[in-house]
């Protein structure tokens, strides 16, 4: 009886030790930085940065293959946060990427023909509707990525800026640093 208990205990501890050793010896370096970058991105999955989603963009930044200034929904705040995380200087938003004020898509419901094309385009499933039925945008889910605009055959989707009201207003972000960086560079170049 005692030998049985002892054997099982020793066997189990031996296996546990071996597994612990293997976990240390064969440790895989994940890429924790990509996770951190991914957390800072707005997760709109809009693809405006040229990557198929936020995670691939985060991976590309982590590998140093892409700049940090491609995220339109994140805006300057994201650039500053990323620059802070990566120890780089904040840079201006990429020129190809246009920054818009935060907005939501609104479907003009009397024009909607119920084709479901915008539902398929929406990366966050914020559009509700069925075939030949009027569609509607769940505004709290909409990230304002505008991916639903091109597929609409009757152009009944419009973007409406979110008006700052008493609940959504916040202090402006201190210092528009990327803009400053952009202005300073030509001065240095001239000097």
């Amino acid at each position: 009886m005692l030998s049985a208990i002892l054997t099982m205990t020793i066997l189990a501890s031996l296996f546990g030790l071996l597994l612990g050793y293997a976990a240390v010896r064969f440790h895989i370096e994940g890429d924790p930085i990509a996770d951190q970058i991914d957390q800072m991105l707005p997760q709109t999955q809009c693809g405006q940065c040229g990557h198929p989603g936020c995670r691939p963009y985060a991976d590309a930044i982590a590998r140093g293959e892409d700049e940090i200034n491609k995220c339109a929904p994140g805006g300057h705040e994201t650039i500053i946060a990323l620059a802070d995380l990566l120890g780089r200087d904040p840079i201006a938003m990429d020129e190809d990427i246009e920054i818009r004020p935060p907005s939501v898509a609104i479907i003009i419901e009397e024009d909607c023909i119920g084709c479901t094309l915008c539902i398929q385009a929406c990366p966050v499933d914020a559009i509700l509707g069925a075939a030949k039925q009027m569609h509607s945008v769940i505004e709290s889910e909409c990230t304002g990525c505008e991916l639903c605009l091109p597929p609409c055959p009757v152009e009944c989707i419009v973007m409406e800026p979110i008006e700052a009201d008493i609940r959504s207003w916040s202090w402006p972000y201190p210092g528009d640093q990327p803009q400053l960086a952009q202005e300073e560079t030509p001065v240095e170049a001239q000097a």
Partner: peptide
């Protein structure tokens, strides 16, 4: 202590699988 065969084998199998996975991952 052959009567402990089942539980010992479960232990061995779990260990082998886990160990293989760790090593293979690397």
């Amino acid at each position: 202590i052959e009567y402990l065969r089942t539980i010992a084998f479960i232990l061995v199998i779990a260990f082998v699988v886990q160990f293989t996975e760790t090593v293979m991952h690397k």
